[in-house]
Amino acid sequence: MPMDMEAALAEIVRTGRAPDLHGVVVTHGQDLIFEYYGQGPDVAWNGPLGTVTFGPDTLHDLRSVTKSVVGLLYGLALEGGHVPDPDEPLYACFPEYPDLAGRTGLTVGHALTMTLGLEWDESAPYTSPANSEIVMETAPDRYRYVLERPSVEEPGRTWRYCGGASALLGGLIARGVGVPLEEFARTALFEPLGITAFEWARGADGVAAAASGLRLTPRDVARIGRHVLESDAPWISRMLTPHVEIEEGLGYGYQWYLGADWAGGFGNGGQRLYVRPGLGLVVVVTSGRYDLPDAHMASAVVLNEVVLPALAG
């Protein structure tokens, strides 16, 4: 099976059908059954790294796959009684903004499901000051910036991509557990999974970017995926329950995308964590197609033309 994957992927790379492919890791059950590493230019949260020869120990930007890790961390903090339940009012969790106290109707769950109904636009490139996430990361107070956005629709009805929602969750975790988000991640999730190396970019205020700042190796991202497959924690079931429909056939749970038989984390540039419980399968793809409309193509080709055919065979 690994040889089938190796030959199939080599042909895809040779013919240019997976440009800027940096890494692939596939696990089946407890076994690492395939991995691939490429070479090419890369950036770390918009900072150029030059040409990188990727390998098993090379950290890579996860971009918005970070959000799915934060979804897991929220559950761990909730299990310890450190953060409010998703049904709790959101603005009450930020009493330092008394001028916003009159806003009601929003819950923590609306942040978890990106259904806040607040004005937010990440359609501009992530190098542009027109992008709401970039404005948030350069703001003197990220939480105020998000919470004071105008309301444009009824909460809970429409999914609107919002890194600000993830930032609020990161803030709730950090203040609840009493340590920075990255420190809680290290002790509560990474170290128990055997993950020892990571980086987490910070915004202008010095706070870890819960929406997009995490860097891990593909192997360690796969460890997180396997944890999702194997854990019997009640939060995992809640997290992977569809709470809102994005489009036909695609739902969203608590910071995770959901299909009929899979769950996933997606990140700018083609970063993917794909978990398929029925097959015991985890696929991780890292790529350098940042801000490009075809960024998802490499992961789709890897999954549909390399991994799944080999398993079926």
Score class of each variant (00 low, 15 high):
L189I: 04
L100A: 10
P180A: 09
I12D: 02
P86S: 11
P293Y: 13
P98K: 06
A92S: 14
T27L: 05
L308E: 08
V152Q: 12
T158K: 07
F184N: 01
M239N: 00
A222R: 03
E148T: 10
F54M: 10
H243G: 02
G225T: 03
G288H: 06
R223E: 08
D31W: 09
W235L: 03
M297D: 15
P129G: 10
Q39S: 15
E96W: 09
T241Q: 04
S231K: 05
V108C: 08
A111C: 13
R215T: 04
A77P: 04
A260H: 05
L78F: 11
L76T: 00
T158M: 04
A204P: 08
E11Q: 15
H296E: 14
G81N: 08
D121I: 11
Q39D: 13
H227M: 14
V283T: 05
L172Y: 01
R289K: 14
P155R: 05
L168E: 01
Y91N: 05
A101I: 03
G288E: 03
E35D: 13
G163Q: 06
V43M: 14
P56V: 06
F54D: 05
E35A: 10
G264E: 00
M114A: 11
P293Q: 14
V24F: 00
G163I: 03
R223I: 08
G313R: 15
A130T: 14
A310H: 05
E247V: 12
L258R: 01
E248A: 09
G251R: 01
S151C: 15
F266A: 00
E153C: 13
Y97A: 07
G178P: 04
K67M: 06
L78G: 09
G102M: 01
P242I: 02
Y161D: 01
R289T: 13
V179K: 10
E35P: 10
L62N: 04
V108H: 00
G170P: 00
